[in-house]
């Protein structure tokens, strides 16, 4: 028999959660601070980032890349973990948004703000309509088909020599200053992440979560599952297209690399590291992955090895992701009790 006393970890929720997951009972300012602290840290942190990095233009740029990848990753996380659609079409959203903005800017002469805004709204519509026929597919099949979309786009653009062909578009209007560039993007990211979280907490978001849990019950409740999925696809498209459109105006050019597979794959890594289903997690994942990838540039081809090791480490040792882990530590007391 086992002589050692059996121990297990007991976890106790902190007392401010009342009854359901979303209902809190706050009785003091400390508790309010406890609840809002992490959110404020995240928001203030991102708003301060351009100021802190101002002396290093290179890292300033990297920070903006973090935001761009963050947006695409949030879009992936939302579809995969909230809607139940594992989409590898991140690059498709990005590319459609980018090309739409480029066209609006070069052909119609729209200023960046309008071009980005319109490309976000219209581009997401285009993406949702084009991907809609695949919505009846599930799991891995949906993933495979959505992976084909960006690949197909690059081939079509190359072969038909449309949309600037392999050259793409150049001479797209940039931003008036570094600050508008940085803060426009960061604001877009914050609005996207917290807007989506807000939406999911509303009744409309509840229906989305219900579709993921049990689509048959949703159908029996008189709600069109295809309709809900389409709406979710559009929302995810908004984030991806905004990222693409913004990126195009930052770099003042667009080419078929806007449909590069990286943008479909990296969001998965960012979501795994940051914590799936949290929407904030993928941004934190991007915050780790993008600078890491920059630091590793010096290692040449060894870069991908180190990169893979980090990713594998996360999958093996912290598969829940940083944010889920941190949230648990933050919200619960833990202690060892004898069984």
């Amino acid at each position: 028999m086992n002589a050692q006393p059996q121990r297990r970890k007991e976890r106790i929720d902190r007392g401010i959660k009342a009854r359901a997951e979303t209902i809190y009972a706050l009785s003091s300012l400390e508790e309010l601070a406890y609840l809002l602290g992490p959110r404020l840290l995240f928001i203030v942190g991102f708003l301060a980032l351009p100021l802190i990095l101002a002396p290093w233009p290179y890292w300033h740029r990297v920070a903006l890349s973090v935001c761009v990848l963050g947006l695409v990753s949030v879009s992936f996380d939302f579809l995969a973990n909230q809607v139940g659609l594992v989409s590898l079409g991140g690059a498709f959203f990005f590319g459609v948004g980018g090309y739409t903005a480029a066209l609006l800017n070069t052909a119609w002469g729209l200023p960046p703000v309008l071009a980005i805004g319109l490309a976000t709204v219209v581009g997401a519509g285009i993406c949702a309509v084009l991907i809609a026929p695949c919505l009846p597919l599930r799991g891995i099949y949906f993933a495979i088909v959505t992976l084909m979309y960006p690949l197909l786009m690059t081939r079509i653009i190359e072969a038909a020599d449309i949309l600037g062909g392999t050259e793409g578009f150049r001479g797209i209007t940039g931003f008036s200053s570094v600050w508008t560039e940085a803060y426009g993007l960061i604001l877009g990211l914050l609005v996207g992440v917290f807007g989506l979280r807000r939406y999911l907490a509303e009744d409309a978001g509840l229906v989305i979560r219900a579709v993921k849990e049990n689509d048959q019950s949703v159908r029996a409740s008189g709600i069109s599952v295809a309709g809900v999925r389409f709406k979710a696809l559009y929302l995810a498209g908004l984030l991806g297209c905004f990222a693409g459109a913004y990126y195009v105006h930052m770099y003042r050019s667009v080419g078929i690399s806007a449909f590069a597979l990286d943008l479909s794959i990296l969001p998965i890594a960012a979501t795994v590291i940051g914590g799936g289903g949290t929407l904030v997690g993928p941004v934190i994942g991007s915050l780790i992955l993008v600078p890491l990838s920059e630091v590793l540039r010096d290692f040449g081809s060894l870069r991908i090895v180190v990169y893979s090791l980090v990713l594998a480490g996360f999958v093996v040792f912290r598969s829940e992701g940083i944010l889920v882990f941190a949230t648990r530590k933050y919200q619960q007391f833990e202690r060892w009790v004898e069984v």
Partner: peptide, 23 residues
């Protein structure tokens, strides 16, 4: 449904909010 199909992770009452959202 014969085999019950609840939304497992949602609180029981939120299970009914879903049909209440239907047209």
């Amino acid at each position: 449904f014969q085999i019950m199909r609840p939304y497992h992770s949602l609180p029981a009452y939120k299970n009914l909010v879903v049909p209440l959202c239907s047209p």
